[in-house]
Amino acid sequence: MGCVRSRHIKHPPGYEDPVILAAETSFTVSDVEALYELFKKLSCSIIKDGLIHKEEFQLALFRNSNKENLFADRIFDLFDLKRNGVIEFGEFVRSLSIFHPNTPEAEKIAFAFRLYDLRHTGFIEREELKEMVLALLNESDLYLSDDVVETIVDKTFSQADTKGDGKIDPEEWAEFVKRNPSLLRNMTLPYLKDITMGFPSFVMNSEVNDAE
């Protein structure tokens, strides 16, 4: 239903008014409409219900709907704000807004913290960090001995865990990122500033009167 192009217009569950989404995010109304073009494509790539399922997200990221990846799973779970197993349009826009160049750095820092807090304890713990390093090595077909992995994790923890209590809290994380700004590199997608250029067909499907 949500996959049929039509001007009058049965939207899928989770569709939200672009005007409201623009007011609550870093996007303009036109940006949100352009994102809807992308959303329609992603949300109908496998299961044609106008919602992004995990397999569709994996297909878009990896060109492979079966590719398991810890970090893609975390991103999917964070985008799925209602935690109902799918990404709706409103969730898609609100979450992507964090990656907009104009979004305050504090929001990006907070999102990255939640991303790495695998077990939702409110802290990034040493075991979580090691698990993520091992996942990255596995994904990259890289081999490092356990001693080397331990050294990397220990060194990073000694720099980030300034209170020395064996876990990284949000305040320590924010300070660590300020000292290592490259850690936020993939939290900004410059392309989002020009999203209407990527999906010019949004003009044809716009439901918003230019005068609004």
Partner: peptide, 24 residues
């Protein structure tokens, strides 16, 4: 790699490269 920050290593994951979503 032994000198690398663990989070820098992690941030190279393909799963965190959302730019891929916009590739045609």
């Amino acid at each position: 790699p032994a000198l690398m920050n663990a989070f820098e290593l992690i941030s190279t994951s393909q799963g965190l490269n959302l730019g891929t979503l916009f590739e045609k």
